[in-house]
């Protein structure tokens, strides 16, 4: 592989186009072209400068992850957090264990609470209808003793389901916030250290 300025810039461009805006990309590229320009006036070869900069692929990966985490912080959405997590995974094997697994577990937990909440919210009104039918003298399957108990049971179940879903929303927001902070810390401190050697 060629180890010159053109190749370095080409790799950064290839990997960051589409993620960064053209202005942001130019801003980053200009830093590296200036680095090469000044280095060359000090008598260093492009190859030498290329080598001491380190792998442009790794640099692009880190810039991409930082950018996507920032984006997920600014605009909260499932899509953005998923992109941020995936970009951070690319930073090192370490993150398969310390990012991917916690992420999957949290998503599962939130999903299960949501499904249980929705199930209660559906069963509640159904039980209510049964209780009303029972009150009207139509025989139905009922696990409660009287129509009044049935109405009480139905209201309770519905409210509980509603609370679960609402609580789940706030839990998701809390995890989102903590997750962003963790990813930032992860990019800043933990990952990519192996390439600093």
């Amino acid at each position: 592989m060629l180890q010159n300025e053109q190749e370095f810039v080409r790799i950064l461009q290839n990997r960051l186009e589409g993620t960064l805006s053209p202005e942001e990309l130019n801003d980053i590229i200009s830093d590296y072209t200036e680095h090469f320009r000044i280095g060359k006036t000090e008598g260093r070869s492009e190859e030498d400068l290329f080598r001491s900069l380190g792998s442009p692929e790794d640099i692009a990966r880190e810039i991409r992850a930082t950018h996507l985490v920032k984006k997920a912080e600014d605009v909260r959405s499932c899509r953005n957090i998923l992109h941020a997590v995936l970009a951070t995974l690319g930073l090192g094997l370490f993150n398969l264990v310390f990012v991917l697994i916690p992420f999957i577990l949290l998503v599962l937990l939130l999903f299960v609470i949501f499904v249980v909440g929705i199930a209660f919210m559906v069963c509640g009104p159904v039980a209510g209808i049964f209780a009303l039918l029972q009150l009207a003298g139509i025989p139905v399957f009922a696990i409660w003793l009287s129509p009044a108990a049935g109405i009480f049971f139905s209201t309770g179940i519905t409210t509980f389901g509603l609370l679960l879903v609402i609580g789940n929303y706030f839990l998701a927001r809390f995890f989102y916030h903590i997750g962003i902070r963790y990813l930032k810390w992860n990019i800043g401190v933990i990952t990519g250290t192996e390439r600093l050697a």
């Binding site: 830093d31 640099i59 810039i63 930082t66 800043g188």
Partner: peptide, 11 residues
């Protein structure tokens, strides 16, 4: 790796 300073500066 000298190249890692620039992403840090951008951050």
């Amino acid at each position: 790796s000298e190249g890692t300073i620039y992403p840090l500066l951008h951050r």
